[in-house]
Structures are given as C-alpha cells and as structure tokens.
Design a binder for these strands. Structure first.
Lengths: 229, 229
DNA sequence: CGACTCCTTGACAGCGTTCAACAGTAGTGG
DNA sequence: CCACTACTGTTGAACGCTGTCAAGGAGTCG
C-alpha cells in the first residue's frame, strides 16, 4: 500500500519572496552541506541569504556550559539567515545532508521591495518566536511535545507518515526539555492511541487523532471545537 | 543623602526613530491609561504606534486556563505596538498609570524610510525574543532572576536604586516561574550580598555586585572576565 | 564483529510548584 | 481617623513533574 510521506519540497518554494529579495535569479548559487556541518556561526557577519532546497537545518544558541536552545528548524522551501540582522545571532547547522540556494546580501540594494520583503520574513520569525515563548514559559512537557508535532505536521503539509529529520535530543533542545522526557511524552501519546511510532529509528510518526493532539497542545481547558493555527 | 533613582525618561526618547516612522510631529497625540487598563488586545487590528512617555506597559499572551506569558515590559522611551504586524499578537496593558504618544499607522505611507525604521524595530524585538527563548528554555530560576535584574538595570541606565513598576507575579510570568520562586530567588541574592531589597513594598532594589550578578545570569561556567551584552 | 549512535524504559533525586500561614501596605468608606 | 478589605510579598512544608543516572536493545558503519 502506498501512503503519502512528508511532502514534495518544490511545492513549498515561494519564488515571489526570492525575487523580491534578490531580483536576478542568476545571483543565486547552489551549495551543499553534509550532515552535522555548520552553515553559519553565531556572531559571524551575515553575508548570505539562504533558501533551503533539500534537507533540514537547526538554528540555536549555546550557553557556556553546553546547554543548547534550538530556536527553530528550517525545512525545504524556507528562507533563513536573514532574520538575524547584520550579524548572526544563532548558529545554524545541517541536521542531515542539505542543499541550499544562497545569495550574497550585498546584492540586495536596500530598495523598497527588498526591505519590505525582509520585513515580512523577519515579522514571521518574530511571530514564531513569540509562540515559542509561551510554549517554553508556560506549557507542560506533554503540551510542548503535542505542539511540536502539530507544527511539524502543518509544515510538512499533514502527510500520512511524518518523517522527522531531527533526533530526540534536537526536539528536546527545541522544547526546553531532556531527550528522555520527549521520549516519554511520545510514548504516552502512542499509548493513548493518538499516534504511532514507526520504523526502526522511530523517526517516522503517523498521527491518528489530530483534534485530540490539538486539545492537548492548547491546555486542559481548551474546548473541543476550538480553532488553532 | 541623595541617590540617583531610576533615570530621567526624557533622555531615552529617540526622536529620530519617531520621525522616521511618522514624519510630522503633529500627528502624534498624547493619551493616558490608568493602572491595569488595556492598551490593546490580542487579535485586534493594529491601528496605532505607541511611544511610552511615562509609566510601564506589559505585553503578554494567555492560555485558555489563565496561564500567562509576558513577552516584555515597555519603559519610558520605548516604541511598541508596531512589532505585531497588522494584527496584535499580544495583549498590552498598563502596569501603572501610563502616558503614551500615539500615531495612526495609516499615517505611515509605507515609504522606504518608514519601512526601514519598522524593520529596525521589529528586528530589535526579535533579538529580545531570541534571548528570552534561551532564558525560558535553558536557564534555572536563579539565572533567570539575575538576567531579569540585569536587563532592567541596563534599561533604567544602572540607577543606584532601581524602582520596579511590576509585581512579583509580573516578573514570574515574564520568567516562566511562580511568584514564590521569584521571591525566593531575590531573597537568595539578598542573602549573598548581591543586592538589597528596600522600601516597604520591596520594589526598590539596589544592586551591589553587578559582575557577580552577571556571572550568575550566564551560568556556572561563565568565566569572570567574560563579556555580556 | 566491535564501536558508536539513537531511542526507550526504569529508578530515584531535586528544582520548582502548590498549598498555606503570616505580616505589612494600600485603598476605601464610614 | 480608624476599621475593614484587598493586595502584595515572604517564608515554610510537602508534593510532583521533569531531570539525572543507568541499563539495555536495536541500527549503522567501518
């Protein structure tokens, strides 16, 4: 039997946003990063804008003793590296083998369309960060895990089988938890029949009850008929 | 004996930013909010830009069961209400009696200078949110409290005596803690000689050892000579 | 096959929450 | 001016969620 697995990345790219940022397509170059390698580092000058073609990227901050907070994951179609201003405020590296298109930021002339397109992207990042704040500050481990799954599900266009590129540790560092707690939360959701963990490495997840998952993500008092983004 | 208490607000206003956003000064109007009243609500259309003249404002999100996450505090000189896009993603209300200058956003013509000034402000909000993420996701109660004090100290221009407008509950909801934990953390810092809590309502704080406080905020492995923003 | 990584699960500990009591202050109205 | 109430903040005690430590299985790679 055939099931839809994740989504076709090419459908997600938004050419309008690209051309608004850097007019000529010819200024974009393809580049590949091996799994685990750094795309850019925190505090480095932000020279390029990236659009992810294939693979996955995580952006994070580190504390001096190694604690890590992942700010977000970038999936095919996403534009990133721009939401940082002139200097990167995060480190970005490839979770799996990754292909990007990149353009020098100096090729952006600072015209109205470019600044407006940048504003739109930065604003989107801000909105994501704001939701992330509520998650980290005020939600339980189970709620965070449910919210993470729903976010990935939405961004992968609700595939029948979701293939996560990131490890349990990555998820934990995104959710402000430990990998053990994430693992336990996923097991709990499995035991409740909301999802099933498939495949040998357990990175394939099938969601069986999205409404119930959303109910968990929104907290105990969220009514069944409630809408969510 | 006289000590410097907080800072003179008027020195903080940045006329350049204001005029870049809305050219004519005449388009700004003064408005007052009583302590506890709402400036704007989440999901409302963002009609105005605000500059805080006096008082203090908190912006926050609520979960359906009442859990609250404060995204930030606005102090005299700050511009806010713009970092939300077309629709407010936070509720904002006055912590104490507050005076603002406001201008209709429709008076912003979307020209290059205005969009560029907006981008700068939104980018600043994003940077703040990103640091907040690390705080909420990966720092302990004592570290969060130390970081909060340093942020306020910096924004009030390191006064000899810091007068906080917000309650322990507000601080807790900003730091993702309970008010009891914040109170205990402050007592711990007092017992260590890093600060003293003064005044009847304990909202006056004098910092005695900023380097040590910074050492706590950055985590156990931060070396003494380390730089911080 | 051996070394390594990734994930799950169990047992236990601890940090922060919850529940509670108490004191001091502000606000209100008589 | 005082009584009354509501609010704010501190502190103590016990609980519980999540972290820590540990073991074991399963997959991958050379």
């Amino acid at each position: 039997m055939l099931v839809r697995v994740n989504a076709n990345p090419s459908h997600k790219s938004v050419p309008t946003e690209l051309t608004a940022l850097v007019g000529q397509t010819s200024l974009w170059h393809e580049f590949k990063y091996q799994r685990g390698t750094e795309v850019f580092g925190e505090a480095e000058p932000a020279e390029y804008v990236y659009q992810l073609r294939a693979g996955a990227v995580r952006t994070y901050k580190l504390l001096s003793d190694g604690r890590r907070q992942i700010g977000g994951f970038h999936l095919p179609g996403d534009i990133f590296g721009l939401e940082n201003g002139d200097v990167h405020r995060f480190t970005a590296d490839a979770i799996i083998d990754t292909t990007v298109w990149l353009a020098r930021r100096e090729n952006m002339f600072g015209g109205l369309t470019e600044v407006a397109a940048t504003l739109k992207l930065v604003n989107r990042s801000l909105e994501h960060a704001e939701n992330h704040l509520l998650l980290l500050g005020r939600q339980t481990a189970l709620e965070r895990t449910a919210a993470f799954l729903l976010e990935m599900d939405r961004r992968l266009q609700q595939p029948a089988l979701m293939i996560l590129p990131m490890s349990r540790r990555d998820i934990a560092d995104y959710l402000g938890l430990t990998l053990e707690t994430v693992s336990r939360a996923l097991s709990t959701l499995r035991d409740r029949g909301i999802l099933s963990l498939e495949g040998k490495m357990q990175r394939k997840i099938a969601l069986h009850d999205r409404p119930k998952l959303a109910g968990i993500a929104l907290g105990p008092h969220a009514l069944p008929g409630r809408k969510f983004e």
